[in-house]
Structure formats: C-alpha cells, structure tokens
Amino acid sequence: MALEASPQSRLTAFLKSDLFYRFRTSYVTVAASAVTVFILLAALLAPWIAPHDPFDVSTLSLWDSELPPVWAEGGDPRFLLGTDNQGRDVLSAILYGSRISLAVGFVSVALAMVIGIVVGLVSGYFGGAVDAFFMRIADVMLSFPTILVALLVSGIVRGALPREMHDSAALIVLVFAITVTTWVQYARTVRSSTMVERSREYVYAAQLVGRKPFAILFSHILPNVMGPVLVIATINLAMAILIEATLSFLGVGMPPTNPSLGTLIRVGNEYLFSGVWWVVIFPSLTLVALVLAVNLLGDWLRDALNPKLR
C-alpha cells in the first residue's frame, strides 16, 4: 500500500478491503448499521426535523393531550405517534430524547476509553505497585454488576450535591457515573495487550534509541493495542445507553424537564393504566432498536477483527 495515498484511492482501497467485504456480505450487519445511522441522524437533526418543540410550553395545548397515534381511531395527522398528557408530540420528544441518550453514551464511552487506555498502558508497561493498585480496584469493581456500581456512584454524587442542583447537574452526574463504572474494561484489555507488546522487538528498538517511556507507550504501543479497544467501545456504547436509560427510568437520571429515552419511558409508564400505551411503547421501541443495532455492530466488529475466525 502506498503511504501517500490520495483520499480518492484510499476510499477505493477501503471499498476493496477485506473488512468492507465482510461488512457488505452480512445482511444483519448492514441492517443494524442502517438503523444506527438513521437514529443518529434523526437525533442530530432533531431541532430541524422535529415537527414540534416539546420544550416550548406556549405551543402546547391541553386540547391535544393524550391523542393516539395517527393510524388509531381519533389520531391527529399533526401528531404522528400521538401525544402525552400535556399535549407534547411523542415523536418530537423521542427525537430530542435520543439526542440526550446518545450524547451521554458517546461522551461517557470516550472518557472511559481515554482513562482506561492510559491506566492500561501504564499498568501493563511499568507493572509493580501501580499495576497492583489499579488492578485491585478493577477486581472489586468487576465483581459487582455494572448497574449497581453506576447506581452507587450516582447516589454518592447526588448525596454530595445540594438538592437543587440534582436536575441541572443530572447530565454530568450520569456521564461521571457511567465513566467511573466502565473504564475498568478498557484498562484490563489494554493492560494485557501491553504486557505482550512490551517484550516485542520494536519496543526494545525504541528503548535503545532512547525514546522516553511515554513516547514509546503512546506512539508505538498504543496503535498496536487499539483493535480490541474499538470492539469494547462499540459494545460499551450500547451498554452506556442502557445504563443511562435504566438510571433515568429509576428516577436518578435525567429530569422530566429535559428527558432522555429512559425518562420518557418512566413518565409514560405512569399513564399505562389509563390505556395510553403509545407514550411508553414508542420510546421503548426506539431504545430497544438502538441498543440491539449497536450490539449487533459490536458483535460483527469483534468477529471481523478476530484473526482466529478468518
């Protein structure tokens, strides 16, 4: 492969690559990525494509409250998926809600990845007391279910914050709790690959020419341990979205004034008994579709990058 490839030929190289071939021959994966991209775009463009602004109280009318979806009897063409008890458009609420869910997911995955990579590289390369310290923490955290650790961290942060800040800081608390809970997995993986890489010849060569340890870690070892990290990141994106939704559903996540998908499900759940099923079912379906699609992508990536399966 030429080093100085033009963007054009790089694209053709990618289209001809093994990875892309595996991608386009797996229909499930193509479908999963289509769903992911669709939800991503819809969430990104929410302010422009949402039919209503769910946060603009002046446009809400109680006359429009609890309208069923458009295909059911009594549906209103203005509200494709119906409205909730305050006359908010369910579709618009879902669009804005996925924005928050995805934002929390992406930011916490990015943060956890950076922290996990740094800890993993340092632990694996230097070993000794630093390694023992981080890995004992990891042991304790991994022996409890993720959702419990996330609940506990968010509970501690909430206990430390004054009550009136709970709503305004909800987004930060969520990202913090999910990051603290999930960095361990990256650290473990990077650590074990680093321990293999550090006795390779290219590392000795770099040490011999006098490169500093951190330069070796980040410019030589890091690129060689990134593969598994990407797989974990994809699967963890689904998990982060799920943890966020669960925390919000349990009432310790996003407030109803700024709802994520989990909050929408929580709020909609309260109206289930009056037969108003659409307020809770559509956000749930969106969440399930998103998590399932991202999970399938992660599974595919894991198999595609695994040399043993080729």
Partner: peptide, 11 residues
C-alpha cells in the same frame, strides 16, 4: 438479551 429489563416489565 438486548431488551432492557424494565421494558420487559412494562410490556
């Protein structure tokens, strides 16, 4: 495995 448990409960 992909359906969150609380969604199962609601259903």
């Amino acid at each position: 495995i992909s359906v969150p448990t609380f969604v199962t409960g609601i259903l």
